[in-house]
């Protein structure tokens, strides 16, 4: 409970830090306007005043904070869209892409990690190592482009970018076709973080005394591995999952979303950043911060579930 309460000041500090960072950034949301020779600088000052950007930063912060408390994300400086609308459009797309990718990663990284740990230095271990580290060692924009060149340009089997065939009736197969390349890239690049973690956790646990004891008592290997070892190996694994899964789900993958023209959160964030669209950046950061804190919280709580010896005070 105390841990939950701690989240409130943490969130407040994140809000202050983010607000300061974003507003101190050089450039402004109306920079582009001044490039029109027929708009003079006073026009920008007028617009900035209209959006309250000329007020002292603390006052602006209080306004923003008050709006956030009421879950009012405000209006984007780029065209006056509701920030909630923009996020509402992007978030489901990111959830779909990253959600499916993470499910696949979890499905494959447990067997890979466990196998690599149990059969350390076997051919299987080496293969898993090379595959995992191979993926982690490739910049994702490069891998994405390579896959696109092979499967879209050369073979013309799969669509290059987008989420679905626009105007076509809904079909699961159509959605899957568009998901294959981005999901494959995401999985290849990110699965190592998970499978290597599982491997090393398992390795550590497998050698501990109580596992040896269990073995010496004649408990079957399978049971040793899956009941005793895995359960304990999950503690550090849960930490790393807590740290990564939720934030990735809401934060999206800016590079893959750009390469594969996927209208998700990562791209929305990046575009807001380059155009200094303060309300949108702040809203996305805040949602991501929520995810970070929640993820950590869940990870901490999961320790208690996984290992009754750990009590959270």
């Amino acid at each position: 409970m105390r841990r939950v309460l701690q989240s409130i000041p943490t969130l407040l500090i994140i809000m202050i830090a983010t607000f300061a960072l974003v507003h101190l950034a050089p450039g402004g949301p109306f920079a582009y306007l001044v490039l029109n020779p027929h708009i003079n600088r006073s026009e920008v000052l007028r617009l900035e005043a209209a959006y309250g950007l000329n007020l002292p930063l603390p006052i602006q912060f209080i306004h923003w904070f008050w709006a956030m408390v009421h879950l009012n994300f405000g209006i984007s400086f780029q065209g006056g869209q509701q920030v909630a609308t923009l996020i509402g459009a992007a978030l489901p797309n990111t959830l779909l892409l990253v959600g499916i990718s993470l499910c696949i990663i979890l499905l494959i990284s447990f067997p890979i990690g466990i196998l690599a740990a149990v059969k350390q230095y076997s051919v299987a271990d080496y293969t898993a190592t090379i595959l995992s580290f191979g993926g982690i060692s490739i910049p994702d924009f490069w891998l994405g482009l390579m896959l696109m060149i092979v499967f879209s340009i050369s073979l013309n089997w799969l669509p290059a970018g987008g989420m679905l065939t626009i105007g076509a009736p809904f079909s699961i197969w159509d959605r899957i076709r568009y998901l294959i390349l981005p999901v494959t890239t995401y999985v290849l690049v990110n699965q190592a973080y998970f499978s290597r973690y599982i491997r090393s956790s398992m390795l550590e646990v497998v050698r501990q005394d109580y596992i040896r004891t269990a073995r010496s008592k004649g408990v079957r290997e399978r049971v040793v591995i899956y009941k005793h070892a895995l359960r304990n190996a999950m503690i550090p694994v849960a930490t790393i999952f807590g740290l990564t899964i939720l934030p990735s789900l809401v934060g999206g993958a800016v590079i893959l979303e750009t390469v594969f023209a996927w209208p998700g959160m990562g791209r929305l964030y990046y575009q807001s950043a380059v155009s200094r669209d303060y309300p949108t950046i702040l809203a996305i950061t805040l949602i991501a911060a929520f995810a970070v804190i929640l993820g950590n919280l869940l990870a901490d709580l999961s320790y208690g579930l996984l290992d009754p010896r750990v009590q959270y005070d």
Partner: peptide, 19 residues
């Protein structure tokens, strides 16, 4: 349909795929 494709290489690829 005015499709937004933020990467130049992807744009070329989509010309190829007919998207």
């Amino acid at each position: 349909v005015y499709k937004i494709v933020p990467d130049q290489n992807t744009l070329v690829a989509e010309l190829r795929t007919g998207q």
